[in-house]
């Protein structure tokens, strides 16, 4: 786990239908359960029509802006290689780009629709959020029918990052 900092900025992005909003939702609830002030912002007006999707999550002690400024993101979770060039402007110098791990995470996930949970599971290893907060967030975000499968994907991907 990284050294605690004041604010954590995570940019998510990809195209409509990849579960990006759900992934950022999972992180948002986990940060909330861990006692942080957390904000999230995205534009989803046209996302269902295959447009670009972008979601920003920020958590820490005090958060003002719901958006991450250019070159301010600590982490970039890009779900589609085509979207990477436009999203990388958010990543700060020395920030962690998960793009090289996307293929590995995709391989580890049986159900392609759970790649989003896999990405967050992988990320979770690098964030100061306790496992029980992640568990509560999983329970909040997923319906009972799909909770167990997402829990499994999350744990597997988290193990990948070790």
């Amino acid at each position: 786990m990284k050294r605690k900092q004041d604010v954590y900025n995570i940019t998510f992005g990809g195209v409509g239908g990849q579960g990006i909003i759900k992934a950022s939702e999972l992180l948002g609830w986990a940060a909330l359960y861990d006692g942080y002030h957390v904000k999230k912002s995205e534009v989803h007006g046209m996302s269902q029509r295959g447009g670009s999707v972008e979601s920003h999550v920020r958590f820490g002690s005090v958060i003002y802006s719901p958006m991450i400024g250019l070159a301010q993101a600590d982490f970039l979770l890009c779900f589609h290689p085509d979207e990477h060039p436009r999203l990388k402007v958010f990543l700060k110098k020395g920030g962690f780009d998960l793009m090289p791990y996307l293929a590995k995470i995709q391989e580890s996930v049986e159900n392609t629709r759970a790649v989003n949970t896999g990405m967050v599971g992988f990320l979770s290893k690098y964030l100061p959020i306790r496992p029980d907060s992640w568990e509560r967030a999983l329970q909040t975000v997923f319906k009972p029918a799909v909770l167990e499968s997402n829990r499994k994907v999350f744990a597997q991907a988290r193990a990948l990052s070790e």
Binding site: G28, H37, K40, S41, E42, V43, G45, I63, P66
Partner: peptide
């Protein structure tokens, strides 16, 4: 506005 309506927080 869109940002106030659609951004989330605790």
């Amino acid at each position: 506005t869109t940002r106030v309506s659609h951004s989330k927080e605790d």
